[in-house]
Nucleic acid binder design. Structure first.
Lengths: 118, 118
DNA sequence: CTTGACTCTGTCCTAAGGGGCAAGGTTTAC
DNA sequence: GTAAACCTTGCCCCTTAGGACAGAGTCAAG
């Protein structure tokens, strides 16, 4: 059992972020000791998972859906997670294409500027 | 001479975006006919340039700097533009690295999930 | 009892507009 | 002449994932 600062320290999230997760229903509403939120090791694990999923490109609403699905069936929605991962990877491929074409556009812009002004 | 809707139509920007550009000092404050903003062909060219620069990755504050520099010397700041282009390309390379590592992380996450739950 | 560390809620801020609203101006059709 | 249809104006709230800050309440230690 710990307060929000400890949870933040253990997970690398800030208290502000943790309260945000709570406010959008991504983590359960914790009990209170007086006015202070009290968290358990389960919350540490959950916030850890959230942060890790964020670093690989999931946004909070996607995570909320996964958490909701898990709460419904009480098991991890592996198939849906796999689908999400696949579509994330597709999106990454699209992002790569975009970066390549932006780079090409920058090259052309550079050449054009130096033809025009150089 | 035209109103904002015509300028929007000619440039592909929305009236909303054009007013935003004006509010941050990216385009000059236009004269008015009554309460309506009146634009010239110069504005068409400027908004066109803004939009094109946006598509290759420049944000509005960067463009504002360029416009300010041009206004100061009354000539296009070619050297600074070239520097900006070079740093944009560097940033694109960094983005690409990040995408590749994210993709790798997704692969590993996928394998881990299916080892654990599959 | 007081100090310092921690937490609470609430507000405003970010980039680049999107959406919507009411009020007023302009143009076209009848 | 007037009504419909369209255009512009400013204003407000909304988006992501929190950051910064204020003011107040709370906790443990000295």
């Amino acid at each position: 059992m710990m307060y929000i600062g400890k949870l933040a320290q253990l997970t690398g999230a800030t208290p502000k972020a943790i309260r945000l997760y709570e406010s959008i229903g991504l983590i359960p509403i914790p009990l209170r000791e007086g006015k202070y939120r009290v968290y358990s090791d389960k919350d540490v694990a959950l916030v850890h998972m959230i942060r890790r999923a964020q670093t690989v490109g999931f946004n909070l609403s996607e995570l909320k859906e996964l958490v909701a699905l898990k709460a419904k069936d009480n098991r991890f929605p592996i198939e849906i997670a796999n689908e999400l991962i696949a579509s994330k990877r597709e999106k990454l491929r699209a992002d790569m294409d975009k970066i390549l074409s932006l780079d090409q556009a920058l090259i052309e812009l550079h050449e054009e500027l130096n033809r025009t002004f150089g």
